[in-house]
């Protein structure tokens, strides 16, 4: 692929990735959303986060891998427990990183 095409890709991807982020804030901010829509939107964040969590844990390499060989699933359990117990981000980050480093360096 030549350099011009690469630049076209960069500009094109830039436009299609920026527009969907900016347009709703730019165009919809002047309207007051109806209450049911607001309620529906309030569920978007938990749903999105849960989807992202599921994908990042169960498919860390882009394909679904629900097996004991997937070290991310092993990390998920202590991290979730610590997060629920402490409700503190830094504490929750530690077991995941430690488990990951241990699993990677000594088991997998």
């Amino acid at each position: 692929m030549n350099s011009t095409n690469i630049w076209i890709i960069i500009i094109g991807v830039s436009i299609v990735s920026i527009l969907p982020r900016i347009l709703p804030v730019a165009l919809l901010s002047r309207y007051e959303f109806p209450a049911p829509l607001k309620r529906w939107l309030s569920f978007v964040a938990p749903a999105v986060l849960s989807g992202l969590t599921a994908l990042s844990v169960a498919a860390p390499d882009g394909f679904i891998d629900i097996s004991i060989n997937n070290s991310f699933i092993w990390d998920f359990i202590p991290t979730l427990l610590v997060a629920i117990k402490t409700r503190n981000f830094l504490y929750s980050l530690l077991p995941g990183i430690v488990t990951m480093a241990l699993l990677y360096n000594f088991i997998f």
Partner: peptide
Amino acid sequence: NFTLPAMFIC
């Protein structure tokens, strides 16, 4: 590489 999944979980 578990930083982002950990963040999502939290």
